[in-house]
C-alpha cells in the first residue's frame, strides 16, 4: 500500500509539473523506423541475443524484439540500435 501511494504521489508531481516521464520513471523509449530499424533507450542490459530474438531488461519490464537477421548496430550503456527485419515487439513483466 505504501509503495502504491508513493507511486501515485510521484505521478501526480510529474503530471502537474510536466516533467519528462522517461527521466522521472526511467521508462524505456522504443523508436521504431519502418520495420527495419529500432532504437531502444533507457534499457538496463541484454538478457539474450540471437539472430531471431533480442531480449532486453528495462526498469519495469523486459522488451523482446523478434525478427529475422537482427543486428545490433551499436550499443552503449543506455542506448541500442537494432537493424534487421522486425516481426514483433513484446513487453513482458
Amino acid at each position: 500500500m505504501g509503495k502504491q501511494k508513493r507511486n501515485r504521489v510521484k505521478s501526480n508531481i510529474v503530471e502537474s509539473l510536466e516533467l519528462p516521464k522517461d527521466l522521472m520513471y526511467g521508462a524505456v523509449i522504443v523508436t521504431v523506423t519502418g520495420r527495419t530499424e529500432a532504437l531502444i533507450e533507457n534499457y538496463r542490459g541484454i538478457i539474450e541475443y540471437t539472430c531471431e530474438k533480442i531480449r532486453l531488461q528495462t526498469k519495469g519490464c523486459q522488451v523482446e524484439i523478434r525478427g529475422k537477421r537482427l543486428l545490433i548496430q551499436y550499443y552503449t550503456n543506455d542506448e541500442m540500435k537494432v537493424t534487421g527485419f522486425i516481426h514483433e515487439i513484446i513487453y513482458d513483466s
Partner: peptide, 13 residues
C-alpha cells in the same frame, strides 16, 4: 562492456 563504457558496434550473432 556497456557498463565499462566500451563501445561495441556491428554486433552479430
Amino acid at each position: 562492456c556497456a557498463n565499462h563504457d566500451i563501445l561495441i558496434w556491428n554486433l552479430l550473432y
